Simulated scan of single mutants.
Amino acid sequence: MAGRLSRRSVVAISVAAGLAFVAVVAFVFSVLVTPGIGDPFTGRALYVYPDSTAAKAAATASGGDRAAFERIAQTPTAVWLTPEQHGLDDVQEFVYELVTAAHDARALPVLVVYGIPDRDCGSAGGGFSAGGLTDADYPLWLDRIADGVAGYPAVIILEPDSLASAPACGATDERVRQISGAIDVLSARDTTIYLDGGHSSWLSADDQAALLERAGVRRVRGFASNVANYNSTDDELAYDERVASIVGGSHFVIDTGRNGNGSTGDWCNPPGRALGAAPGAADGSGGHDADLWIKNPGESDGTCNGGPAAGQWWPEMARELAAG
């Protein structure tokens, strides 16, 4: 009869509508969950941690020092999680307080997980940041970090230098296993993870890409480069784009905290450096997600060129960076 649909037509329409709904759900799920889709930084303020070393220094400084230190303290920088400062007993509570404070401030926290066993070639003599957890305690520590995140959005820079240094440390297989396991734990929460991408004057793009592939970069958002280094953004961008193209179009972030004057070729407390571009989302082109201040400006690289121990506040460096 005219104006009435046959049973077959009704079924066909129902099936088509159902398939369309499934397609929409699948697309939304892919945007929210699939690594490499959905820039976490666009339209988001980055969290300013009120208890940073720069903030503490600014609180007791005066005159020009106070202004210089406040400039650093008021800029969003990453918060480093190390077992030396926050171990198995308190890291979960610390992370939870941090991510909830960031949530209340409507800002996105950037965390650096830095506790891998034999960190900084510890068993091979070790660098200025040698340390880390035992192989047995490391996954437990990661579990507690994940529980602390508790579903709140967070960006995680996972173990800077761990992959890039692995060949020289004679620990490639161990590093790949440890990083892959860390991805399993931390990706279960609402985290956006970037692996160690070295930097443009370290490994070749091919060698760095091979390490990232083995560790599981395609299971996360991407990689971070220039962490605690001074290479120019242009140099890093060219390098990162080469690495990204090799690993299937991965995304990346660049540490610009101290690269305002580029590099002298010295990675450890070189004089005459300057703060770089302010942290925030990139322009959206290619795989470049954001510029971040990952290594906190004003903290020493180690006992070199007159600096104190790695991670300690060094007023002379902070003044120079802010003035550069």
Rank of each mutant, 00 (worst) to 15 (best):
I156E: 10
P83Q: 01
R71E: 13
P76Y: 03
V95T: 14
G63P: 10
A107T: 12
L32G: 13
G132D: 09
G63I: 04
D161I: 06
L88K: 07
Q92E: 15
A107E: 12
A130W: 02
D104H: 07
A73L: 08
P40T: 06
A105V: 04
V110I: 14
A54K: 09
A150R: 06
H103V: 01
G131I: 08
A54E: 09
D39P: 15
G126L: 04
I145P: 10
T42P: 03
A166F: 01
P50N: 03
D89M: 03
G63Q: 07
A130S: 14
S162G: 14
I157S: 04
A146Q: 12
L133Y: 02
L140C: 02
P160Q: 10
P153K: 02
G125M: 05
G38Y: 01
D143P: 04
T42Y: 01
Y47P: 12
T100Q: 15
A124R: 04
L81R: 03
P139Q: 10
I157V: 15
T134S: 15
S62H: 13
I72Q: 06
W141K: 09
S62M: 01
L32S: 14
Y49E: 02
T100D: 11
G115V: 04
D90E: 11
D161L: 02
I145T: 11
P139K: 07
G151W: 04
P76Q: 05
D104L: 05
T77C: 07
A124W: 00
R106S: 14
P40C: 05
D143H: 10
A68K: 10
V149L: 12
D118P: 03
H103F: 02
A154L: 01
A166L: 03
P160D: 13
P117F: 00
R119V: 02
D89F: 00
R71I: 04
S62F: 07
V113M: 05
C121A: 12
L32I: 10
S129D: 14
R106Y: 08
F41W: 00
P109S: 04
A146F: 00
Q74E: 15
Y49V: 02
G64T: 12
V112D: 03
S165E: 11
G126Q: 06
L32P: 09
L46W: 07
